[in-house]
Nucleic acid binder design. Structure first.
Lengths: 220, 220
DNA sequence: TATTATTTTTAGACTTATCTAAATCGCTAA
DNA sequence: TTAGCGATTTAGATAAGTCTAAAAATAATA
């Protein structure tokens, strides 16, 4: 069984993103820029990742991620995003603070930690930035995400992302009691001005202008 | 400002325990046994810790922890125990599983992570093993811990430990709704057989035999 | 196509934490 | 008071991850 060090995990995750999930080849310089390390360090790391067969590496010609590599990258991404959910939802970190901490936390080695955390968080499908969380098999559920103002009256869904993630907008969401991950139901729509009324977590109802609702992405 | 690597933190924590909170001197071999590393490795580490002035180190004569060292050790212990509370109370780890994972988690560097986690957990004063959690200034509140059956009728307190931590007993506690950290009030005592009735978290009342109550330590 | 420019790799060095093997210190007992 | 033993330290090695400087390969351009 292949095991990766924390540094190798980070490189592989970066490579996965750079290769757009495995579609494109990636160059040493690409990785260097993404990881903020020198190309010389990257060469060394690519050789190691090649030996572990998570990438296919040809000197001077860059690399392609392998199927095994994709799986492992997705597991790292999964851990990272689950920790982000925890930090934002439970510990009230703001979205821009979580990356580094989630990164460190995601490298903690334990068989059951992530399963239990996932369970504790209620198996979230999206991280606080709205990016999908792969399941334990690496599968990513890609479901339609629609702006809230385009959701049909009476439909239910989950807030999974916002288009405008400015602090001001996030504070507004927080103030009115909406958040990423919230279960919502559209209980009223005013055709005249495009405003909507939603019920959050079957408890709280919120009015929103069309502009605000258009900024909120919902998975139906 | 002094910063320690994860390994240095671990050594210092071990030294703090071995020196009984700074009362005794500690030898290289003591540390070697505790850390399960070779004496040669310990010598090297002691030199480093001496240079950082968290211990006072004299070659061939062992070491004493300094005031600064105590403070830093207590911060590491604090982090470790707070994570243990999280793992046991929220993620339902059993007491014997948590040590390693808490160790890894406690080395994650972040200004606010532990403050926020502490707040999220409701500022616990004891870890799942009943050991006290130092506050952010390193102060440890040492308060009397009495067996539950010796608590006066009408008194309130917090369950901080159990004497018998066998899985069977822990399962029993879990089943009846008691747990480490629970706020309790003694609402009835039967002198005849020594049994007690307690109210947990102002909600649930539980009957307990004298034997069971005697196994539960309460901070009043 | 030849030369220059860019990218990538190699070589050698540094740091941290560990090890083994060998040297050294300090104490105790003859 | 010195020999010997146990405890401790030093010396040298390894592994991971990084760096700089220099060499080599590829790509671009005249």
């Amino acid at each position: 069984m292949i095991t990766l060090t924390s540094a190798e995990e980070n490189y592989l995750k970066a490579i996965y993103h750079l290769s757009d999930g495995g579609k494109k080849g990636v160059s040493t310089n690409d990785v260097s820029a993404e990881m903020k390390t020198k190309p010389a360090s990257v060469s060394d790391m690519l050789r190691k990742l090649g030996e572990k067969e998570v990438i296919e590496y040809r000197k001077y010609y860059g690399l392609h991620i392998t199927e095994e590599g994709k799986k492992m990258a997705l597991q790292t991404i999964r851990k990272h995003r689950i920790w982000e959910v925890f930090l934002v939802q439970k510990l009230k970190f703001s979205w821009d603070e979580v990356h580094e901490v989630a990164d460190a936390l995601s490298h903690v080695k334990s068989k059951s930690l992530i399963q239990r955390l996932d369970e504790y968080l209620g198996y979230p499908k999206f991280d606080p930035h709205g990016d999908p969380i792969p399941d334990e098999f690496g599968d990513v559920r890609v479901r339609p995400r629609l702006p809230l103002n385009e959701i049909e009256l009476g439909s239910t869904g989950q807030i999974v992302a916002v288009k405008d993630s400015s602090p001001a907008f996030l504070r507004y969401l927080d103030k009115v009691g909406a958040y990423i991950g919230a279960r919502i139901k559209v209980i009223d729509k005013t055709e005249f001005d495009g405003s909507v009324e939603i019920l959050v977590d079957n408890k709280k109802s919120i009015f929103m202008s069309k502009d605000v609702a258009g900024n909120i992405l919902v998975m139906v």
